[in-house]
């Protein structure tokens, strides 16, 4: 059975059982491996992608739930918020092992797309679903603020 989604801007037909979580569709059927598996139960945020621009956990989102919708992954994300986030991440050398970081970046980009001036409590609320076992949290927080400042300066 085929399901069509708009993936990273392109209509994409997928031949997978409709109950397959989007995460495994991306990773195993479409070879988009930037989105990571960490828990499979919406606990860690490694698998975060954007569904119609909103951050969701792809490990608990069946393919059937995203039919005809717009899905953006780390490979395709190109909003100005995402670019600012990636640049800030590189500038502050946020990453350690890197495994959680696709998810962190997708969550941070989604946060900045609705809140250009996040307070610490906003960052806590938007980012506490994304676990980083390397505990790069200090730098994630700083990089979000850095990206916000950069975006503020641009606009």
């Amino acid at each position: 059975m085929s399901t069509t989604i708009t993936l990273n801007g392109k209509d994409t037909a997928i031949d997978a059982s409709p109950d397959t979580p989007l995460l495994w569709v991306l990773r195993d059927h479409l070879a988009l491996t930037g989105t990571k598996y960490g828990c499979g139960m919406a606990q860690c945020g490694s698998c975060t992608v954007h569904l119609d621009g909103v951050a969701i956990r792809s490990c608990v989102t069946p393919l059937s739930a995203v039919a005809s919708k717009k899905v953006t992954t780390i490979e395709g994300v190109a909003t100005k918020e995402a670019k600012a986030v990636q640049a800030a991440w590189d500038k502050l050398d946020v990453v350690q092992c890197g495994y959680c970081q696709s998810g962190q970046i997708m969550s941070a980009a989604a946060l900045l797309s609705t809140n250009l001036n996040p307070e610490d409590s906003d960052i806590d609320a938007a980012m506490s679903g994304n676990i980083c076992r390397c505990a790069t949290y200090v730098r994630i927080r700083a990089a979000i603020k850095e990206a916000a400042a950069e975006l503020g300066a641009q606009s």
Partner: peptide, 26 residues
């Protein structure tokens, strides 16, 4: 000086979980 373990902010870094070989089974 900046880190050299690149590919970790754009999803291109390859971890074991990402390896796919011809005919590979999970």
């Amino acid at each position: 000086i900046p880190r050299k373990d690149g590919g970790k902010t754009d999803g291109t870094a390859i971890f074991t979980q990402d390896i796919k070989l011809d005919g590979m089974q999970t």
